[in-house]
């Protein structure tokens, strides 16, 4: 009786390990396929939307990057907004950083075209998303740099702990809300 039971258990262990082999092989193939799709999107070639819908958030991030490369900003925005709360903190920071870049790039384009009214809200959104990215990952140096770019584009109204700033607060508020980069030193 015990010998039969032991024998059956060995067969059971074999069946279990074969199922595990099949499961891991399928998972490995699935990861390989998804990585291929990510590489394809980064290279600038679109993929079937069904693969993206059922795929991991990294795939959507890659597709948003593809849309941005093609200047399809609305598609990129809608794709990124779907994954802002997905993944770990690092991934969330990465998604927010790319979203900030999306806003900032458009804001810079508007400034270059002298469409200040349209540039203002976009720069404000860019700053907000960079701040969110840095709150999630304070070591994201690209986000720090681009936040500074956005701050220079649209300086904050408040000045800090400087008596001169307090004296000229009204004047400072007026000028600091005009978007645009300083064109060199005086």
């Amino acid at each position: 009786m015990i010998r039969t039971l032991r024998h059956n258990m060995i067969w059971g262990a074999l069946a279990f390990s074969i199922i595990a082999v099949i499961f891991h092989a399928c998972s490995l193939y699935s990861v390989y396929r998804e990585n291929q799709l990510i590489v394809q999107l980064i290279a600038g070639r679109d993929v079937d939307v069904n693969n993206v819908v059922s795929g991991p958030p990294e795939l959507r991030l890659a597709r948003a990057l593809y849309f941005k490369q093609k200047h399809r900003y609305d598609d990129a925005l809608s794709t990124l907004s779907l994954i802002l709360d997905k993944g770990d903190r690092h991934f969330q920071a990465q998604a927010r950083y790319n979203l900030g870049n999306l806003y900032l790039e458009q804001a810079v384009e508007k400034v270059e075209a002298m469409h200040m009214n349209e540039a203002l809200p976009l720069a404000g959104l860019a700053k907000q998303t960079y701040r969110q990215a840095l709150a999630l990952d304070s070591q994201n140096w690209d986000a720090k740099y681009n936040l500074e770019v956005a701050m220079r584009l649209l300086p904050e109204m408040d000045r800090v702990n400087s008596s001169d700033d307090n004296q000229n607060s009204q004047k400072a508020q007026f000028w600091t809300t005009v978007p645009g980069f300083p064109r060199g030193l005086p």
Binding site: N35, Q94, N101, L153, F181
Partner: peptide, 13 residues
């Protein structure tokens, strides 16, 4: 145009 840091490419799974 204006220099800014590029987008973060998604890492492979």
């Amino acid at each position: 145009g204006e220099y800014m840091r590029p987008d973060a490419a998604p890492s492979l799974l």
